[in-house]
Write a protein that binds this DNA or RNA. Structure first.
Lengths: 352, 352
DNA sequence: TATATTTACGGGTACGTACCCGAAATCAAA
DNA sequence: TTTGATTTCGGGTACGTACCCGTAAATATA
């Protein structure tokens, strides 16, 4: 019932090389103060024994902290969506800080890519060992993570993915499938007119994020041979005035729209518009368990909300970094979150 | 750059309770030798401080080994599929044995549920801390894992899932989707006759496993409105004579079958039959990167093989147990493996 | 050659927990 | 009261690695 003793550690290496443990340690961390000759001898023994350090002991003895950076949008008046991932991040932080992990969070403004760049370069300056980020701005994120890669700093994406970057992992929704689900829900109250709108309220109109969702959305109708016209509405300014203006125009142009699918959490602003303009006949589907959204869900202005467990995204994102950097354990490259459907009826029980 | 000291460990508990570390330790592991009074005092402080043990230090100091059991099919002459998961299991074992994990593997005969039961009860007798199993026989597995749950022994499924059991996680294919992919590949050479066969060569004809795959298979044709007749062929005996007999009869009855989809790795026996009976006109799709299957793939008797990274299943299955039991880190409940498509052209480069 | 400086290395302690061993305190039996 | 058994507890070491500090040896400078 006891551990076997076939494991060779620094002690055995030191014994074989006729040196002290301290010298072996110097070689292992290539610190100075070892002659070339003994260094070579020790390295040979390390290779011969295929020495694998005991990470548990290593972390325990180390006084160094592993500092991680988090780069996510600031909670703004417009949306408090990022409160949830932040909660998960905080929970993970409190769990792993006793193992020498320190988390610093940097916030950017979703309406201003420049703030993303500022914070990103701040992260690059403060030498962090790992980065968790929401790649809300694709090109800016690409630039940033390439710099990370050059510094050999692993990075994790949450909320949305950036394809073909060498990220440690992605934790978030399968965007295409999420759009697909959104489409199915959009047909829920469809009668005869057969027009649905897909609304993108965002500064970044052609983000990979959005394109994936829209593609999934359209695929549903194609796969099911539904002869439905899909109206795409882009709203570049996120304030409620712009939303009202653009939606008024669009609904004027297409007065027979039966359902609106909003591709992100700003569905509440569409709901507000529908409420004011008394268009409760239009079915509304959108994203995320925000207070405003839930309010409109309860008022039956929103029919369905799709949620991707944002708290868990934050939690698992940090834990993924912890697992590689501290525990040395492998991590799945992709963690797709559930695509949860929240309605007026089940919302009270939802675990965000 | 140094660890902060806000962490309260056993030392602090001991100090506050005016006892020694050893006594605190006794309470933590509810060993005997502590009076009720001090036990209560210590427990109060533990609760007050919300003490979380340092798992790294705990594992390092502990002389106890954590023994895990693995229950998978024996590599038989019929199929060497389980060599791959075994390789992954061995790899994981060699990585984690230095942290006090010991793995014992139990093998059962895929043709004999009784051997499963024997091995299962052997596992229940030898008190293991975690179990990794391939639930090839559903009902037998159900019985087994319920016994595990009662003993509070976590268990992990690989290769196929058993729904609604309280498993730590499942690591394997999305069976429905895998059948769906199989269906798509079955249409690859389809001409006009529009008949495909789905062949299940297994003792366990109605396994959850198989039903899921078949459901996915059928869904593809339904989703794409393909007016294709699907012939279901059950072959209960896995020897080549039975396969030949049953297939001969089936092909006689349906002489216009254009494609055959075999729902498991025994596709080579169908390939052998097609070769003998010179029916190279029939498209053949099946599972798993076995030597025999690859040979028939190269002979162009098999068109496609679908693979689910069996080696990784074994590896990740064990690592999942390691992560919960040793590292105390959370584990995703479901790890869907890739549904890889292997052809004659790409097989040489496939990473099983 | 004497002294200062640098290089190379070993001793030893710490990390937080587990657990062995011995000893004091309490209790039971005589 | 004495002896023995039992309960209750503390000291101290070990796990494998990191790293501080001191020192002998090698080298440089006078």
């Amino acid at each position: 019932m006891d551990k076997e003793n076939t494991y060779y550690g620094v002690k055995e290496i030191a014994r074989r090389a006729n040196v002290s443990i301290a010298t072996v340690d110097r070689v292992l961390h290539n610190r100075s103060g070892v002659s070339e000759k003994t260094k070579r001898k020790i390295n040979d023994i390390i290779k011969e024994l295929d020495y694998q350090p005991n990470i548990l002991a290593s972390r325990l003895a180390s006084k160094k902290i592993i500092s991680l950076a988090v780069l996510i949008p600031r909670v703004s008046e417009e949306t408090d969506f990022w409160e949830a991932p932040m909660k998960g991040i905080t929970r993970a932080d409190s769990e792993i800080k006793k193992y020498g992990v320190q988390v610093t969070t940097f916030y950017f403004d979703l309406n201003d890519p420049a703030t993303f760049n500022e914070q990103a370069s701040a992260i690059l300056d403060g030498h962090f060992k790992g980065v968790l980020l929401a790649p809300s701005f694709i090109e800016e994120s690409r630039k940033f993570v390439r710099a990370c890669r050059e510094k050999k700093v692993p990075f994790v994406f949450i909320d949305s993915d950036v394809p073909d970057e060498d990220n440690l992992c992605y934790i978030g929704p399968h965007l295409f499938q999420s759009g697909y689900v959104g489409a199915k829900l959009s047909t829920y109250r469809l009668k005869e007119k057969h027009k649905v709108a897909v609304v993108n309220i965002s500064k970044e109109t052609d983000s990979y994020n959005y394109l994936q969702i829209e593609e999934g959305f359209r695929s549903y109708f194609k796969d099911h041979n539904l002869p439905i016209e899909i109206i795409r509405i882009d709203i570049k300014d996120t304030d409620s005035l712009s939303v009202t203006r653009d939606l008024t125009r669009a609904l004027h142009q297409h007065d027979d729209i039966e359902a609106i699918f909003v591709t992100n959490s700003r569905v509440f602003s569409v709901a507000a518009f529908l409420e004011k303009s008394k268009r409760t006949d239009i079915s509304l589907i959108g994203y995320d368990y925000l207070k405003e959204n839930i309010a409109y869900l309860n008022k039956e202005l929103i029919d369905f909300l799709i949620c991707h467990k944002p708290e868990e995204q934050g939690y698992r994102g940090l834990m993924a970094l912890y697992q590689t950097l501290v525990l040395g354990a492998p991590v799945e490259k992709t963690h797709f979150m559930p695509i949860d459907i929240v309605t007026k009826e089940n919302q009270a029980f939802y675990q965000n």
